[in-house]
Design a protein around this nucleic acid. Structure first.
Lengths: 346, 346
DNA sequence: CAATTTTTAGCAAACGTTTCCGCTACGCTC
DNA sequence: GAGCGTAGCGGAAACGTTTGCTAAAAATTG
C-alpha cells in the first residue's frame, strides 16, 4: 500500500483550505458554505477520493469489523452459517474476518487473541471440539468485546447465543423411527464434551424412555471426530454385535452416510434391515440412494441471527446494559427413504 | 471498543519514561539499557499490554490483511479454497477478510471497493458468473493493490493466477468414457462466459475429435447456474431426445448428481444405460449409489498457492518488479462406478 | 455607525504507534 | 583538561481522520 491515494489533506492543499474544512464539507456539516462544499465534493469526485478507513478506525476506536471463529470451513452446515453472517454483516456495513480453529483448542485461543488485537468490534464463536476450558473467552469478554455464540457454546451467563433445538430435533427423529417400527435403535454420538452431542443424545434417550423402550448402552458409540470414516467404523462394530440394532440415529449426516456405507457393504438393506436418520440435512442427502432422512438445521438463519444480535450489541455499546438473549431455532425433520420402513406416515 | 486497553503511553507514564523508549524496549532495540528493557517487559506483561494493530496499520501503511472475494461460500470446492487460503494466511500472520459476491457482478464491484477502502494489502479474486466487464478490477490494480486470481479469471497480463487444468481434466474424463465404450457422450456445460466452462467444453470436444467421434450440438446443454436442479432438468431434456446420449459429462458434481437423479427417475441404469462423470470431486461422490466418477480439483492447494503468491507479491512490494506467474494445477480423474461400463480399466 | 450576532473557516489535539534526530552525561584518550 | 566517542534516552513528526475551540469576516441589529 504505497499510498498514492488521495487524502483529505491533498484536497485541502489544492483548494487552499484546511483539512478540517474538507472533512466537514464532505460530511455536509452546517458550518461550511455551499460553495466550499461544492468545490470540495467536485474535487473529491475528480480525484476519486476514498477515505482511509484505517485512520478512521483509529480515530473512532471502532473497526466496523466482526471476527468469526469457525471450527471447520469445509463443512456444509458451517459454510451456510458463514454465508448468513456475511450477508447481514455486508448489509450493515461490517467486514467479517474469518478464522478457522480447525477444531483445535490451541488454535482457537490464538485466533481469538489475534482477532482481539486486530480490534474487531465483536466476535462470533462456535467452540472447537477440543475446548473444555473457557478462560480465553472470559478474558476477551471482560475486556468489553461482545461475543455471540452460535451452535456450539457453553453455559456463559454473559453472552448471547443462537442455537438450534438439538434436543427436540433428535427426539423427533427418534420418535419417527419408533413409529416406523424400529425396535433396537442405536446412536452414533459425537464428541461427548460438546453440548450439541449431549443434547442430541438426551433427545434420543428421552424418545426411547417416552415410549417405554430401554436404552441399551451397547448401541451407543462415541465418535469423537464425527467423520464419515468414523461413522463407518463404528457402524461396523455395531453390526457385529450379537444383538445388533435395527436402526441408527447418527449425530450428523457424514456419520449417517458412513453408516449407510457399512450397512451396504455388509449386504443389508436400508431401511428394511436397518433404518438410518442423520442430522443437519446436508444438501446431498436428498440425492443419496436411498435418500437420507435427516434433521434440518437452519444454518443460514443461524448465521444471520447471530450476526444481527452481535451488531445490535456492538451498536448499543455504552447506551445502557447489553441485552443477553438466547435464541433457539427450530429444526425440521426431513423424512426420506432411509427411514421409511412402513412407507409414509401421517 | 471503549479502550480500557493498556497503551505504550500508560507503560511509559508508570515507569517515568517516554513512549518512544517503551516502544524500543519492546522491540529489543540496542539503544535501550538492559534494565529498562526488563522493567518495560515486566510491566507490559503485568498489565497484559497488547499493541494496537489499528495504530500500527495506519503508521506502516499496511494492514496485514488480504481480502478474498468468493462467488459462493456454500460450495464444496470454494470452501476448500477458503480453507487453504486461511491456513497459509494464518501462518504468514495475515488476516483474511471474506466477501461473497453471490455470483453477482454488482456485488463483486462493491465488494472490491469496500475491500480497497479497508486498505487490504492484496486481494484474491474469483470472478462471479455474471462478470464480463473488468474495469473495476483494472482500477484496483492500477492503484497498486496486487490481485491474484484463483479458478475463475480473465486474460489479464498484469496479475498472477492459479487455476486448474480444466481442459486436460475434461479431456481425460471424456477419453475415459470413450474407453469404456460410450458412443454418444453428452455434456452439461455451465455459464458460457466463464473460462472454466469453455475450457472444459474444449477438453470434451477435443477428446471426441481425437477419437474421430463427431460432436453433436444437440447433446450439449448450457446450464447457466450450474445447480443440481438445472442438471436434472437439462438431463431430462437430453433423455427425451430421439437419439439420447449414452453418457453424460457434467461440468460439475451437483449437475452430475442432478443427471443421476433424472436418469434414475426415468428407470435407466447407471452406468449400464448411461454413464456419468462429474467435475470437482465433491467429497460425497464416493458415497453416492453408484459412486460418482469425477475430476478431482485440488481446491485446498489452490487456496494455499494463491495465498502464497499474493503474500509474496505483497512483501516484494517496492523491491523490484512484481513477478507475474500463472500456476496450473493438475487435476486427477477419480474413477468410480458411475462410469465403469466395462469394469476397471488398466 | 457601533455593537452584536452569525457565518465560515482554521488551529490543534487526539487516536497509538514508530522512527529520525538530537541531547545529555559519562568515560576515555592524548 | 580539552576533545571526542558512545550509551541511553526524549522530543517531535508522521500516518489520515475528526472535532472542540477559537478567530476572522460578514451580516444584522438598534
Amino acid at each position: 500500500m504505497k499510498s498514492n491515494q488521495v487524502t483529505i489533506k491533498d484536497i485541502g492543499r489544492e483548494l487552499g483550505i484546511s483539512p478540517s474544512t474538507v472533512s466537514r464539507a464532505l460530511k455536509d456539516h452546517p458550518d461550511i458554505s455551499t460553495e466550499t462544499k461544492k468545490a470540495v465534493n467536485a474535487l473529491a469526485e475528480k480525484l476519486n477520493y476514498q477515505p482511509n478507513i484505517v485512520a478512521l478506525n483509529l480515530r473512532q476506536q471502532k473497526t466496523n469489523t466482526i471476527g468469526v471463529i469457525i471450527p471447520e470451513i469445509v463443512h456444509f452446515f458451517f459454510s451456510t452459517v458463514i454465508s448468513g453472517i456475511e450477508d447481514v454483516a455486508y448489509q450493515a456495513g461490517y467486514n467479517v474476518i474469518l478464522a478457522q480453529s480447525n477444531e483445535s483448542y490451541q488454535r482457537e485461543v490464538t485466533d481469538m487473541k489475534a482477532l482481539f488485537n486486530s480490534r474487531v468490534d465483536g466476535m462470533l464463536l462456535s467452540l472447537s471440539r477440543e475446548t473444555t476450558n473457557f478462560d480465553h473467552i472470559e478474558s476477551i469478554i471482560s475486556k468489553g468485546v461482545p461475543i455471540v455464540f452460535y451452535d456450539r457454546m457453553y453455559e456463559s451467563p454473559t453472552s448471547s447465543k443462537v442455537i438450534v433445538d438439538d434436543y427436540a430435533g433428535a427426539k423427533e427423529a427418534v420418535l419417527h423411527m419408533i413409529d416406523q417400527g424400529c425396535k433396537r435403535i442405536g446412536h452414533l454420538m459425537a464428541a461427548p464434551n460438546l453440548m450439541i452431542s449431549i443434547d442430541r443424545f438426551k433427545g434420543y434417550e428421552d424418545a426411547l424412555l417416552e415410549r417405554k423402550m430401554k436404552v441399551n448402552k451397547e448401541w451407543v458409540t462415541e465418535c469423537f471426530s464425527g467423520t464419515f470414516e468414523e461413522g463407518k467404523r463404528a457402524t461396523k462394530k455395531l453390526l457385529s454385535l450379537p444383538n445388533p440394532p435395527d436402526a441408527i440415529f447418527a449425530n450428523n449426516d457424514p456419520m449417517a452416510m458412513g453408516a449407510m456405507m457399512a450397512i451396504k457393504e455388509k449386504g443389508l438393506k436400508i431401511p428394511q434391515d436397518i433404518a438410518i436418520v442423520g442430522f443437519s440435512n446436508w444438501f446431498f442427502g436428498e440425492v443419496m440412494d436411498p435418500s437420507l432422512t435427516s434433521v434440518d438445521q437452519p444454518g443460514y438463519e443461524m448465521g444471520q441471527e447471530a450476526a444481527r444480535m452481535l451488531i445490535k450489541q456492538i451498536e448499543m455499546k455504552g447506551k445502557g446494559e447489553p441485552i443477553i438473549e438466547t435464541k433457539i431455532l427450530k429444526t425440521k425433520l426431513i423424512i426420506r427413504n432411509s427411514s421409511l420402513k412402513k412407507g409414509k406416515e401421517k
